[in-house]
Design a protein around this nucleic acid. Structure first.
Lengths: 176, 176
DNA sequence: TAGGCGGATGACACCGGTGAAACTACCCCG
DNA sequence: CGGGGTAGTTTCACCGGTGTCATCCGCCTA
């Protein structure tokens, strides 16, 4: 899928982030503005789990999992969801996210209902229910995130290997 | 499904609306505020197709199809979509809406892509694509709308047959 | 210990969406 | 033909989310 990099690269790169990701870097990787990241932290949507801000001069530190959540949020926003409903989603979602990310689908129905199904279950859910469903394949989110981490890896002056440009943006619309 | 009324009732009732639905009535039936209806008309989201407003004191007249569109919009908003993306959707959707409403599904992907698939096609699309999909079964929308029209039919004083009270609010969430 | 720099914070503005209330025009009935 | 009620229009205001800029603070390095 996403650009050509040896999977091992990701591990290596992530190791260099053992203290977590800074606010600005996080925003850059996830593809959101620093203002958004800041606002979301203040309003308890996603707080940096490694180190929270405590007064001016302190530093937020985001974990890889934080980035994952942030990326999911960005996807939902890009899909046209209101930030408000994203909040509702994460109120429920947080615990169930994390294990089988590669295959799981996030299904949002109405304002409260949130489900993580996998594969065929999804179809049953869609057939059964009413109203609007928002479906997000989590595997793609992780892929995007990993690709972005690789693209935006540190030491920008010491890696002339591959051009770190392009395809860091939107996953092609494909089908549809 | 929704309360007990003979299907013929709907036709009869709709006939009494041959001049179309007034703004207030439309808002009531669709389940939105008059303010929203007004704002949407001003900002070209849904204009009353039978008679538009021209100066204070004039009257807007909405067609049944207008109500259908409005109901779809309401569903999307209830699902947590931003009004902005609803606008994008309707820029494309308008022509394809109308024929096979009962079975069609509205699929929204990203900001631009809009598709109306039916039945199994839907599943293919979901498997193929990336990102977030918003799926809306249009049949349910029509059912809800029809039920609301029956509930809120005119001549509230002249129809002692069935008590036209209660459950005039939200069409039961059922399923889900 | 003194700078300097990265980054959190605060203040301000702006825009979209909506509620509330005042204003106004049309229609119908007497 | 005039009054009243109904309904559309207009204005004011608020809130959430975000951009921008200025400020302030703490850590790190020299």
């Amino acid at each position: 899928m996403s650009s050509a990099y040896r999977p091992q690269d990701l591990e290596t790169i992530v190791e260099t982030y053992e203290d977590g990701f800074s606010g600005r870097k996080t925003a850059e990787i996830v593809g959101i503005s620093y203002r958004q990241l800041d606002y979301w932290a203040r309003t308890d949507l996603v707080r940096p789990s490694l180190a929270d801000a405590k007064g001016s001069g302190s530093r937020r530190r985001y974990s890889y999992r934080d980035l994952l959540e942030l990326k999911v949020i960005k996807q939902l926003l890009d899909a046209g969801l209101k930030l408000e409903s994203v909040r509702d989603v994460f109120a429920y979602l947080r615990e169930s996210l994390g294990e089988d990310i590669a295959t799981a689908n996030l299904v949002i129905n109405g304002k409260n209902s949130v489900v993580v199904a996998s594969g065929d279950e999804l179809i049953d859910v869609l057939n059964a229910g009413q109203g609007v469903f928002n479906v997000l394949a989590l595997g793609g989110v992780k892929d995007d995130l990993d690709a972005a981490i690789v693209e935006l890896r540190p030491t920008p002056a010491a890696s002339p290997a591959a051009e770190p440009d392009l395809d860091a943006e939107a996953p092609p619309a494909s089908a549809v």
